[in-house]
Nucleic acid binder design. Structure first.
Lengths: 211, 211
DNA sequence: ACCTGAACACCGTTCAAGT
DNA sequence: ACCTGAACACCGTTCAAGT
């Protein structure tokens, strides 16, 4: 029993390894794992369905999460962690110039937002409530640290208008968020989403007046 | 009975006028009216609750809407109609120059998006489904006709980069949509939302390189 | 400490039956 | 034509009881 629980995080699909792998063990981790998968596949979540899929009673999740919202909060926090890692990777994998880095960040964000639409919606809704867990806020701040630093550095070398970097970062990020929302809503002409994103970055950098 | 049904649309709150005002009458209109109110106030909707509030059985709505989604579709369509009217009013009430009109449009849109957050979410979700009603698509196109025309005219007088006006319109609108989502998610520093919007328009028009 | 089973108050949807 | 009432298969949450 201990051996299955130690493998759980890395291998996934713990439920099929033995006949009844937890009952006590790593239910908490299994719930989060299954919840994220279900959310990605079906876009909705039922606690009872989760319990059914993991072979525990519908009341069992209560031992690990006070209510459904508590599970969603945990999902949200790990979502920000993952987003932060992907944004960090995007900036590290791009050429050193500002536009290339911003484009890479934008593509990574829009990709995350479209691949995990339901999760991102949770992440937005989490901040909506005033009582959002402190851990969620911290993870969110950390996720957006790299983009903010990029704008700050670009200001330092005179490539971006001066002032609070959050002002210009907010506008850019709103644009990416909106593109993702429009893509998820099917309101974008077909074509490649990355092209639309690159177009948006060019417009953000240079404005829309003729040069 | 006929007299109450003719007054329904204009006065609202029909349910309190007589003891049992419909039972047959304008249930359909009353459902839509109440649904929009509930959605704005609580952000969620239950058909049974709606029926309860209107004093009909929980099965009665079925006569007017095949299922919950059909009611949401109707709400969505009237939402686009209303949005279209507000955008038209915004452009009519602004000074004649491009930036003033764009700022006015943006403020009107963000205002709509924050005042009726749940409705706008429905409007986005409606286009997500491939089987979105034709009426919904038409209402959506109509709502965004004025903004698109603004970009087209600005291109004609050389104030905006040439090309398909939808390209630049998409970027601008994504930005406004993202600002609204961030405002609804509580991710915007306090301050006036209109200031943030005006800042965004300025950035969109002039870009973020130092002038 | 962790989980179960029954219970409660809700859902959306269906359908025979009423007027 | 329009509405009701009972029924079905779901929810989330609570709580006494089991191990």
């Amino acid at each position: 029993m201990l051996s299955t629980s130690t493998r759980a995080g890395t291998l996934g699909d713990v439920a099929t390894v033995t006949t009844r792998p937890y009952h006590h063990g790593n239910l908490r981790a299994a719930l989060l794992e299954q919840a994220e998968r279900t959310l990605a596949e079906r876009g909705a979540l039922s606690l009872r369905e989760l319990a059914r899929e993991l072979g525990v009673s519908h009341a069992a999740p209560r031992r690990h999460f006070a209510d459904k919202q508590a599970l969603l909060d945990a999902l949200t926090e790990s979502g920000f962690d993952r987003l932060g890692r992907e944004l960090d990777a995007a900036i590290a994998g791009a050429a050193a110039d500002f536009t290339a880095r911003l484009t890479s960040l934008a593509c990574a964000y829009v990709d995350f937002a479209t691949q995990r639409a339901a999760l991102l919606e949770l992440m937005f809704a989490a901040k909506e409530r005033p009582d959002a867990a402190a851990g969620v806020r911290a993870a969110a701040d950390r996720a957006f640290a790299a983009p903010l630093a990029l704008f700050h550095e670009a200001q330092a070398v005179g490539e971006v208008v001066p002032g609070d970097p959050k002002r210009v970062a907010t506008v850019a990020w709103a644009c990416f968020q909106g593109l993702a929302a429009m893509a998820n809503g099917g309101m974008l002409e077909a074509g490649s989403l990355d092209d639309v994103v690159a177009d948006a970055v060019d417009r953000l950098v240079h404005g829309m007046r003729p040069r």
